[in-house]
Design a protein around this nucleic acid. Structure first.
Length: 726
DNA sequence: TTAGGGTTAG
C-alpha cells in the first residue's frame, strides 16, 4: 500500500505568530476549504446490502464489490474484503493486483502475484498485463522478461492487446532492442502498437524517426497526437510542440483529457497566459474541469504564469472533500487531492509567497494528506528561502526515519537549505551521501561554497564536476563566478567567463555580467568595469550599473559614483537602489547637502526604498523587526539590553560606524540611528530569550550594514559562545 | 498506448 509519509511523521507545523509590520506572517490556517465531511460512500452502502441479503457469498458479487473498492482507490477495504473471501478466483487476484498497481504500490501488487502462483492459481492475460505494468513501474527488467517467458510457456494467446503491454513494458524499462525486435515480429499491429513505438523513439530523443513514423501513420488517434506533442515538449522542443498542437486543432481528432493536460503544461512552460485562459475556457465548456489531471494542470498553469489569485480561486472553489491516499474517499471525482495542494504549495513558493506555501503545507499535515517527496522538496526550498532551519531539519530527520531515499531534487533543495541557513557542513554531508548527482545537485553545492566565501572549494568542485562528465549550465557558471567574486579571484573569474562563452557556448546572461562587474568592482578595478560594459555592449542593463555603483561606494569614489548613478537613473528613474547607494556614497564622503538633495528627489518622485527587516524564529514564533521598532511587546527590555550590550562592547574596542547614516545629523544622533538597526534588535531579542550557548540565527531581507557586521564580530570575539549569526 | 505536482542563480 502506498505509504502515507505523514502517518509516521513526528513533527507538527505550529502556527507562527509574528509581531510588528511583518511581511512574514504565518497564522493558524483557517479551515475554510478544509472541512472534510465523512459521508458514507456508495460502496459501503452496497457492501452493507450484499452482506445483509447474503449475496456476498457469490464469488462474482464479491469480485464486483472488490472492483468497486479498487476503482475508488480504497485499497485498505479492498484488501480486507479480499481476505474475507472463502473462495478466490483468478479475477479476484487480478482485480487486487491491478488496484495496488494503480495507486502506485507495485511492490504490494508483485507480492500478491507471487502468492497467487503459490496458491496454484493460473494467471490470465489480464493478470499478466497488470503485472507487466508493475514491473515497468519498478523498472524490473528481469522480472518482466521472466513474465514474458511465462506467457510464452503457458501458451497464452498472444492477442495484440497483450503483446502491446509487453512492448510497452520493454519501452518503459528502456530495453529498446527488445522492443524493436518484438515490434518487428508482431504480425498484427494496431495504432496502439505504433503509438508505443513512436513513444519509444521520443523517449530516446530520436525526433526524426518518431516524427516520420507519426507522419506515415495512416490512422492517428488522439493518443498518437498526444504522444508526439508531449514527446516534443519533453525534448525541449516547445515551439514544435506548439505547432503540432495547432495542427491537431486544425486536422486532428477531438481533444481528450490528456491532450488538455499536455497543452496546459506546454502553455505553462512557454508562459502563454492568454492561450492558457483559452484552454481553460474550452475545458469549462466541455465540462471536464473536474478531471484530476486537467484541474491540477489548470491550477499549475496559473501558478506558473504568476496568476496566484486565479489559481487560488480555483483551488478554494473545489468541493470541500479531500482525497487522502489509503483513506475513505468520496465517489465524487471533483475533490481536492494531495497533488492539488502540492501544486498550490509549489506555486506559492515559485511566486515568493512563502507564508502562504507554509500555510497550505500545514493544512496538508494536519488533515493527513499524503505529503510525498514532491511537496517536501518544495517545502525544503521554502525553508531555504526564509531560513527555517528547524523545519528543514525536521523534514530531514523524518526522511531518515522512514528511510526515504533522497533523490536529486530533494538533495539539491536540502543542500541549498542547509547552506542558506548557515550550515555548510550539513550541506556537505547531504552532498556526500548522494550517489546520483545531476547538474543541479552539483550546482547547489558549488553555489553553497560560494555563498560561504569558499571560492577555492567551489572551483575545485566545479572542476571535479567537469571531470565526472557533467556539463555545466548557466546556473553553474553563476555559482563559480560568484565564488570567484567573493574570494577575490579575478584571474579565475575571467577564465571561467571565457570558458562559458567559448567552450560551452553559453551566452552570458545578466547574472554572469553582473558577477563580472562585481568581481572587478570588489578588486577596485573601477576603470576596467567601464571597458567591460562597453566591450560587452551591456550599457542597457540596470543590474550591471547597480553593481558598478555599489563598487564605487565601497571604494569611496564619489566622482565615479555620480557618473554611474546618472547612467542608472537614466535607465531606471524610479530605482530606489540608485538613490540610496549614491546618497550613501555622498554621506560616506560627508557630502550632506548632496545626500539630502537626493533624499528630496526621492520623495518628490515618490521613489520608495524597501524597508530593512530582520526576523528571528524562537520556538514557533517569527519575530520581525524594522529599524527603531517599538511595536514588540518586550521592546523596553530589548532596548535596555541592547544599550547595555553596546556599552560593554565599546569597552573592548567596538565603535559605532556612523558613515552609513545618510542624514546630516549630530554624531550622537547618528549613533542612535545605527544602534537600532533591525538586526541588532533581533539579535538582542535572541540573546534575551535563549540560554547560554544557543546559536542565534537572524534572517534579513537586505544586506547587513558595516556597523552591524562589526557589532556581530565584536560580539563573537567578546563572548565565547559561537553566535551562529548569519 | 498518451496526461498533472519537485531542485540550483536572480
Amino acid at each position: 500500500m502506498t505509504r502515507n509519509i505523514m502517518s509516521t511523521l513526528s513533527f507538527e507545523i505550529h502556527p507562527f505568530q509574528s509581531y510588528s509590520s511583518s511581511s512574514f506572517q504565518i497564522e493558524n490556517p483557517k479551515p475554510n476549504l478544509l472541512n472534510s465531511s465523512s459521508k458514507e460512500s456508495t460502496v459501503d452502502i452496497i457492501h452493507a446490502k450484499v452482506i445483509k441479503n447474503g449475496t456476498i457469498q457469490h464469488l462474482h458479487v464479491g469480485n464486483y464489490l472488490l472492483n468497486l473498492y479498487v476503482k475508488s482507490q480504497n485499497l485498505g477495504y479492498a484488501q480486507e474484503l479480499f481476505d474475507e473471501f472463502s473462495d478466490r478466483d483468478v479475477q479476484s487476484w487480478t482485480i487486487l493486483i491491478a488496484g495496488f498497481n494503480r495507486i502506485g504500490s507495485s511492490k504490494m501488487a508483485l507480492d500478491l502475484f507471487t502468492k497467487m502462483q503459490k496458491e496454484s492459481i493460473s494467471p490470465n492475460k489480464f493478470t499478466f498485463s497488470s503485472v507487466l505494468k508493475c514491473c515497468a513501474s519498478v523498472n524490473d527488467l528481469r522480472m518482466g522478461k521472466a513474465i514474458h517467458g511465462l506467457i510464452t510457456r503457458d501458451g497464452i494467446i498472444l492477442d495484440v492487446v497483450l503483446v502491446n503491454s509487453i512492448l510497452d513494458f520493454y519501452v518503459k524499462c528502456g530495453a529498446f532492442n527488445y522492443a524493436e525486435k518484438l515490434f518487428e515480429l508482431m504480425t498484427e499491429k494496431d495504432t496502439v502498437s505504433w503509438n508505443i513505438i513512436i513513444g519509444a523513439y521520443l523517449q530516446i530523443g530520436d525526433m526524426q524517426k518518431a516524427l516520420s513514423l507519426f507522419r506515415w501513420l495512416p490512422v492517428k488517434d488522439v493518443a498518437s497526437w498526444n504522444t508526439i506533442i508531449d514527446g516534443h515538449m519533453r525534448n525541449g522542443l516547445e515551439s514544435n510542440a506548439l505547432d503540432l498542437l495547432y495542427q491537431i486543432v486544425e486536422i486532428g481528432p477531438v481533444f481528450n483529457e490528456a491532450t488538455f493536460t499536455i497543452a496546459l503544461v506546454l502553455v505553462s512552460s512557454l508562459s502563454i497566459l492568454e492561450l492558457g485562459k483559452q484552454i481553460h475556457g474550452r475545458v469549462l465548456r466541455i465540462g471536464i474541469h473536474n478531471d484530476g489531471f486537467v484541474r491540477d494542470s489548470i491550477i499549475d498553469m496559473y501558478c506558473k504564469c504568476g496568476q496566484m489569485e486565479k489559481a487560488s480561486v480555483i483551488f478554494q472553489s473545489l468541493p470541500q472533500d479531500f482525497v487522502r491516499h489509503n483513506s475513505k474517499i468520496s465517489w465524487d471525482e471533483s475533490v481536492v487531492g494531495s497533488i492539488s495542494c502540492s501544486v498550490m504549495v509549489a506555486g506559492y513558493v515559485l511566486n515568493g509567497r512563502l507564508e502562504e506555501a507554509l500555510k497550505v503545507f500545514g493544512t496538508m499535515v494536519r488533515e493527513q494528506f499524503e505529503v510525498d517527496k514532491f511537496t517536501l522538496t518544495t517545502i525544503v526550498s521554502a525553508c531555504a528561502n526564509v531560513g527555517l532551519l528547524e523545519l528543514g531539519q525536521q523534514i530531514h530527520g523524518h526522511l531518515l526515519k522512514i528511510g526515504h531515499k533522497v533523490d536529486v531534487f530533494l538533495g539539491s533543495s536540502m543542500i541549498d537549505m542547509y547552506a542558506k541557513c548557515g550550515r555548510l557542513d550539513d550541506a556537505w554531508s547531504i552532498f556526500r551521501q548522494t550517489n546520483v548527482r545531476n547538474i543541479v545537485l552539483w550546482t547547489s553545492m558549488i553555489s553553497s561554497c560560494a555563498l560561504h566565501g569558499q571560492g577555492r572549494e567551489a572551483i575545485r568542485l566545479f572542476e571535479l564536476m567537469q571531470n565526472e562528465g557533467i556539463t555545466p549550465n548557466e546556473v553553474s557558471f553563476v555559482g563559480v563566478l560568484t565564488a570567484c567574486t567573493h574570494a577575490g579571484l579575478v584571474k579565475e573569474g575571467h577564465k571561467y567567463f571565457k570558458l562559458m562563452k567559448e567552450v560551452y557556448g553559453i551566452k552570458p546572461g545578466v547574472e554572469h555580467l553582473t558577477c563580472m562587474v562585481d568581481l572587478l568592482g570588489r578588486a577596485g578595478r573601477l576603470d576596467e568595469i567601464k571597458d567591460f560594459i562597453y566591450e560587452n555592449a551591456i550599457s542597457h542593463l540596470t543590474a550591471v550599473w547597480s553593481a558598478f555603483l555599489s563598487s564605487c561606494r565601497v571604494h569611496k569614489n564619489i566622482e565615479m559614483a555620480r557618473w554611474v548613478s546618472e547612467k542608472l537613473l537614466e535607465l531606471e528613474p524610479f530605482e530606489a537602489g540608485a538613490y540610496v547607494l549614491l546618497s550613501n556614497t555622498c554621506a560616506t564622503n560627508h557630502r550632506w547637502d548632496e545626500a539630502a538633495k537626493l533624499r528630496g528627489l526621492m520623495q518628490e518622485k515618490g521613489v520608495k526604498k524597501h524597508p530593512g527587516q530582520s526576523w528571528i524564529q524562537l520556538k514557533n514564533r517569527v519575530h520581525t523587526f524594522v529599524m527603531g521598532d517599538r511595536s514588540h511587546p518586550q521592546e523596553a527590555e530589548i532596548y535596555s539590553y541592547l544599550d547595555n550590550l553596546i556599552g560593554k562592547l565599546k569597552e573592548i574596542g567596538y565603535s559605532t560606524d556612523v558613515n552609513l547614516v545618510m542624514q546630516d545629523v549630530e554624531e550622537e544622533q547618528k549613533e542612535v540611528l545605527v544602534s537600532f538597526h533591525s538586526e541588532k534588535l533581533a539579535i538582542a531579542y535572541g540573546l534575551i530569550c535563549t540560554s547560554h550557548g544557543t546559536p542565534i540565527r537572524v534572517m534579513k531581507n537586505l544586506r547587513v550594514c558595516t556597523d552591524c557586521h562589526n557589532f556581530i564580530k565584536t560580539c563573537e570575539n567578546a563572548v565565547e559562545e559561537a553566535l551562529g549569526v548569519n
